[in-house]
């Protein structure tokens, strides 16, 4: 039983993005997704600082520091791309014009509550950026994260203990152990890494899990 690497999680997310979709990638783990988007798929990436259809980082020496992404790193723009101001960029986000937002997270609850902007620690510098706007605005919110914290605590919980970003917004979770989908009935495990049982996954997950087979979807092996 081998958990997925960070790049394998990113590859799994990239494979799930539908052809023709407009997608915003959050900072952190989602930064890895563009490297894995299949070449035959047209995915239009949006970044909150006012750009649609961004491309990869340019070769060293060709960086343009007026052409950056939300992580403040140099990027490129693809044919058909556009620039716009922050108000329009957030209208695109808040107004439901993006198909999917892929975000990192500290915690996600079984009800789809998202905590990804603050640990709530006393010495933490609070910084929200566009996290709340994205979480509320995109039509689907996908989270990619390690299944457990560095301290071994479950990140998929009954109730978030970290400060909330938004309530009941997460639709899909990709971890190093499984792919989960939020349904009316609860969190359904759609894919799980080979060799890991649902019972063992549940032990590492605070929120109750349903097997995909119970929802008629079939529990599939998770491959990166």
């Amino acid at each position: 039983m081998t958990p997925l690497t960070r790049d394998q999680i990113a590859r799994r997310v990239a494979r799930a993005l539908p052809d023709g979709s407009f997608v915003n990638l959050g900072i952190g783990l989602p930064d890895l997704v563009p490297n894995h988007i299949p070449a035959d798929r047209e995915i239009i990436l949006h970044s909150e600082n006012g750009i649609l259809h961004l491309g990869p980082r340019p070769p060293a020496g060709q960086e343009d520091w007026n052409l950056i992404n939300a992580g403040k790193q140099p990027v490129t723009i693809r044919p058909g791309g556009s620039y716009f101001d922050s108000a329009l960029s957030f209208a695109i986000m808040r107004g439901g014009h993006l198909d999917i937002s892929v975000l990192g997270a500290f915690q996600v609850s079984g009800d789809g509550d998202l905590a990804n902007w603050s640990t709530g620690a006393a010495d933490d510098i609070p910084a929200v950026g566009g996290a709340m706007d994205l979480a509320v605005g995109a039509r689907e919110i996908w989270v990619m994260m390690e299944h457990s914290s560095r301290q071994g605590q479950p990140r998929i919980v009954r109730r978030c203990t970290y400060p909330l970003t938004a309530r009941a917004v997460v639709t899909r979770i990709f971890t190093n152990l499984a792919v989960l989908v939020r349904t009316e009935a609860g969190l359904v495990v759609e894919e799980i890494i080979p060799g890991l049982t649902l019972a063992a996954l549940q032990q590492q997950t605070d929120a109750p899990l349903l097997a995909g087979t119970q929802a008629g979807r079939g529990l599939a092996p998770l491959e990166g």
């Binding site: 808040r94 950026g129 706007d133």
Partner: peptide, 25 residues
């Protein structure tokens, strides 16, 4: 601390002569 979209929209309101706005964010 203000969510980024709210920050820019508050300035947009100020510049557009509006008295405020309701946001789900």
């Amino acid at each position: 601390l203000v969510p980024q979209g709210t920050l820019v929209e508050r300035m947009r309101c100020a510049g557009a002569g509006l008295g405020g706005f309701y946001t789900p964010v």
